[in-house]
Design a protein around this nucleic acid. Structure first.
Length: 622
RNA sequence: GGGGGCGUAGCUCAGUUGGUUAGAGCGUCGGCCUGUCACGCCGAAGGUCGCGGGUUCGAGUCCCGUCGCUCCCGCCA
C-alpha cells in the first residue's frame, strides 16, 4: 500500500456520492457484468433493446456492442417514472446497483443472466422515433427497407456478427500474409482506364478537359509494377471497381480482394504460399466444418467434362462421363444420329445415385424443359427377378446389352438412375453442369458441413470468337502461355488448332461451387507479350498505346512473377453461411447499384459540371 | 438490354368464381398488471390493395401498360 491510497476513499463510496471518478457514460460494457460484480454500483450506456413493463416492475434489456444486461426498476426507484417513458432503441445512460437475480429467474441464455442492475438513475442520451425496422428479433424484412435503414439492420445481431466476423477474417488474412513475408502496399484509386475486362468507372478530370480517370478494376498493373520495382512479395486488401451488373455473389460497383503478387516464382510456389492462407481462414472461421486438407488440382478441360463448369461444387459427388461409344450406332436413334452427323457430337451421362424412380426422372425431365431444353433422357435401374435391369424409353431402344455396359461403366445399381445430354459439348456443357447440380440438390447428395476447395488449372489461353471470327484472349492477356518462350515465339499465327489448344499458366480457387479467386504467372517478356497480342489480332501500336507503361517496365528488367487475388467478400460470405454478398458488406448497394441510404448516385450541381467540363445529355427516344 | 418471381396496414401474410363495410398475427399507441426475458390481458389507431388505364352493373381479384424489389441470362477476374 502506498501513501496515496490513504487519501483515496473507497471506490464504492465515491460511486455512491454520485460524483468524481465515474466515467461520463459507463463503468462497464453491457456484456460484462457477472455474479462477481454483485453489490457494485455501475453505470451502463446503450440501447433499450426490449422493454417488459409489468406495471409494478419494469425490465429493460440494455444492449451495446458487447452484450445485453437486464435493468430492473420498481416504484421504489427514483428512476421509475423515467423508466416508464422509455421506448425501443432509445439510447440511455443508466446508473444502478448490480444484484443477483431472484432464485429461479436467472437466464442461462445470457452471459450476464445471473445478475441484473437495479436502476437508480436514467439519462436519455438519444430518443428514437418509431422504427421502420425492429432491432429486436430476427424477422425478415424487405431488402430495400433494410438497405435504406442499414444502420438499424446493422444493430441486429445477425448482420452485426457478420461484419465483426468479416473484420476478424481480414485480420487473420493479413496476419497470415505477413507471416509468409508478404508486405502490404497501397495503390492508387484514381488511375487510368484499362481497356480490357469489365466496364470502368470513370472520374472526369477538372484540370484536363475531356479526360477521365478510371477507378481500378483491380490493381493488376500496379502489383506487377511493384514486382518490377523489386519488392518481391506484395499484398493488399484491395478495393476493386467494376461497372457491371450484379448477381447474388457479385456486388455491383465495388468489392475487395486479397490481392497478392510474388517474384521469381512458379505456379507451385504461388500455390504453396496461398493454399495455407485460404485453408487457414476456412479452418479458423468455418465453425468446425471440414476443410479440404490438400486442394486437388483439376485441369479446366477435366472440370468441364466431369462437372460441366469451371467452378465445380465438389461436395456434389456426381461425376459425368462421356458415353458416346455406347450410343454410337445404337438403337436409340436420336443420339445415334447426333453422333453420326456431327463430328463434335457427344453423349454425356450424369449418374444419379438413388434417383432410380420414374417420378424423379420425370420431374428432372420437366425441369429440363423449363430450362429451355427438349428434355432429359434417362434410364433408371430396378431389380427384376433378381437381376438389375434398365427401365425407360432410352433403355428400351438401347437394348439390354448396351444398357448393361453403361450400368457397369458408371458403377450404378438398382435404385439408381442416369441422365443423358447429347450434342456439341461446347453448346451443352453448361446445361449438363446445371443438371448435375440440380440432381445433387434434389437427391440431397451435397454435404452442407464441408468446404471443398480445389485449384482449377490449365485454362485455355485463347478462345474462338464466333461472332467476329477471330481469336480472343480467353482470360486476361497478362498471363504467360504454358509453352517455352522460343516455341511460343515460333508459333504460326494461322495455326488455329494449335493456338486454341494452348494453355495459359493461369488458375482459380473454387470452393463449394463459388469462384474464390483467380491468378496467373504473368507474361513478363515483352517479346512474348507482343506475340501473344499479335495472335489475338492486336498489332504492336495497339499494345504500345494501351499497355505502353507496362511494356516499358517489362523491357527494363522485369523478374518472372505471378500472383492471385482471392475475393474477400466471397470468402466471408461462405464462412458466414450466407448466399448473398449484401449480408457480409457493411454498406452495400442494391442490385441497381444504388445506395438507398446515402442516395448515390446523385445529380451533380451545374457548377460541378461546369468545372468538370461535362454536359449531361439525356438520351431521347430510341 | 432480355426473361422469371414478387408487390394487400409499419412488417409477415390471408382474401373463394369478379359481389355487402378488405381480415389475422407481429409491431405502434392507450389502459391494467411486482419477476419477465418472444411477458400476459383489454382496447384503439393504422389501407390510394405499387401506380395509370381498360373490361364490367360491380375489380384487391380479369386485361394492357408502367414503376419498384429480387433472382437469372447477357455482361463480368
Amino acid at each position: 500500500m502506498g501513501a496515496a491510497d490513504v487519501l483515496v476513499p473507497h471506490l464504492s463510496l465515491l460511486f455512491q456520492s454520485g460524483e468524481l471518478s465515474m466515467h461520463r457514460y459507463r463503468s462497464h460494457k453491457c456484456g460484462e457484468l457477472r455474479a462477481t460484480d454483485i453489490g457494485s454500483e455501475v453505470r451502463l450506456s446503450g440501447w433499450c433493446h426490449r422493454i417488459r413493463d409489468h406495471g409494478g416492475v419494469l425490465f429493460i434489456d440494455l444492449r451495446d456492442h458487447y452484450g445485453l444486461t437486464q435493468m430492473v426498476a420498481d416504484p421504489d426507484s427514483p428512476a421509475f417514472k423515467v423508466a416508464e417513458t422509455l421506448r425501443s432503441e432509445w439510447v440511455v445512460r443508466v446508473d444502478g446497483k448490480v444484484r443477483s437475480r431472484p432464485e429461479g429467474t436467472e437466464n442461462p441464455e445470457l452471459p450476464t443472466g445471473a445478475v441484473e442492475v437495479y436502476v437508480s438513475e436514467i439519462e436519455v442520451l438519444g430518443r428514437a422515433a418509431e422504427l421502420p425496422l425492429p432491432v429486436f428479433g430476427d424477422a425478415d424484412y424487405p431488402e430495400d427497407i433494410r438497405l435504406r435503414y442499414r444502420f438499424l439492420d446493422l444493430r441486429r445481431e445477425h448482420l452485426h456478427n457478420n461484419i465483426i466476423k468479416r473484420g476478424l477474417i481480414i485480420d487473420s488474412l493479413r496476419r497470415r500474409m505477413k507471416e509468409q513475408g508478404f508486405f502490404e502496399f497501397q495503390t492508387p484509386i484514381l488511375t487510368a482506364s484499362s481497356p480490357e475486362g469489365a466496364r470502368d468507372y470513370l472520374v472526369p478530370s477538372r484540370l484536363h478537359p475531356g479526360k477521365f480517370y478510371a477507378l481500378p478494376q483491380a490493381p493488376q498493373q500496379f502489383k506487377q509494377l511493384i514486382m518490377v520495382s523489386g519488392f518481391d512479395r506484395y499484398f493488399q486488401i484491395a478495393p476493386c471497381f467494376r461497372d457491371e451488373d450484379a448477381r447474388a455473389d457479385r456486388s455491383p460497383g465495388e468489392f475487395y480482394q486479397l490481392d497478392l503478387e510474388m517474384s521469381f516464382v512458379t505456379q507451385d510456389d504461388v500455390f504453396d504460399a496461398v493454399e495455407p492462407v485460404i485453408r487457414g481462414v476456412f479452418e479458423e472461421f468455418g465453425d468446425g466444418k471440414k476443410v479440404t486438407p490438400k486442394f486437388p488440382r483439376i485441369p479446366y478441360g477435366e472440370a468441364i467434362g466431369k462437372y460441366g463448369t469451371d467452378k465445380p461444387d465438389l461436395r456434389n459427388p456426381i461425376e459425368m462421363q462421356d458415353v458416346s461409344d455406347i450410343f454410337r450406332g445404337s438403337g436409340f436413334k436420336i443420339f445415334a444420329r447426333i453422333l453420326e452427323s456431327n463430328a463434335k457430337g457427344a453423349v454425356w451421362a450424369i449418374p444419379a445415385p438413388k434417383g432410380g424412380s420414374r417420378a424423379f426422372c420425370d420431374r428432372m425431365n420437366s425441369w429440363a424443359q423449363g430450362e429451355g431444353q427438349p428434355g432429359l433422357g434417362y434410364i433408371f435401374f430396378a431389380l427384376d427377378n433378381g437381376a438389375t435391369v434398365g427401365r425407360g424409353p432410352v433403355a428400351n431402344n438401347l437394348g439390354a446389352e448396351r444398357t448393361e455396359k453403361l450400368r457397369a461403366q458408371l458403377g450404378l445399381a438398382d435404385g439408381d438412375a442416369v441422365f443423358f445430354v447429347a450434342g456439341d459439348p461446347q453448346a451443352f456443357y453448361k446445361f449438363a453442369g446445371a443438371a448435375r447440380s440440380k440432381i445433387g440438390e434434389e437427391l440431397d447428395l451435397i454435404d452442407k458441413d464441408r468446404f471443398d476447395l480445389c485449384w482449377i488449372v490449365d485454362f485455355p489461353m485463347y478462345e474462338w470468337n464466333e461472332e467476329e471470327k477471330k481469336i480472343d484472349f480467353s482470360h486476361n492477356p497478362f498471363s504467360m502461355p504454358n509453352l517455352p518462350a522460343d516455341e511460343f515465339l515460333a508459333l504460326d499465327s494461322d495455326d488455329r488448332d494449335r493456338i486454341l489448344a494452348l494453355k495459359a499458366i493461369q488458375y482459380d480457387i473454387v470452393c463449394n461451387g463459388v469462384e474464390l479467386s483467380s491468378g496467373a504467372i504473368r507474361n513478363h517478356r515483352p517479346d512474348v507479350m507482343k506475340k501473344a497480342f499479335a495472335i489475338a489480332g492486336y498489332d504492336e501500336s495497339v499494345l504500345e498505346q494501351k499497355f505502353g507503361g507496362m511494356l516499358h517496365a517489362l523491357s527494363l528488367g522485369a523478374p518472372p512473377h505471378g500472383g492471385i487475388a482471392p475475393g474477400i467478400d466471397r470468402i466471408v460470405m461462405l464462412l458466414c453461411g450466407e448466399d448473398n454478398l449484401r449480408e457480409v458488406v457493411l454498406f452495400p448497394m442494391n442490385q441497381r447499384a444504388e445506395d438507398l441510404m446515402m442516395g448515390a448516385p446523385s445529380e451533380a450541381t451545374a457548377k460541378q459540371l461546369r468545372e468538370l467540363h461535362i454536359r449531361v445529355v439525356t438520351s431521347g427516344p430510341g
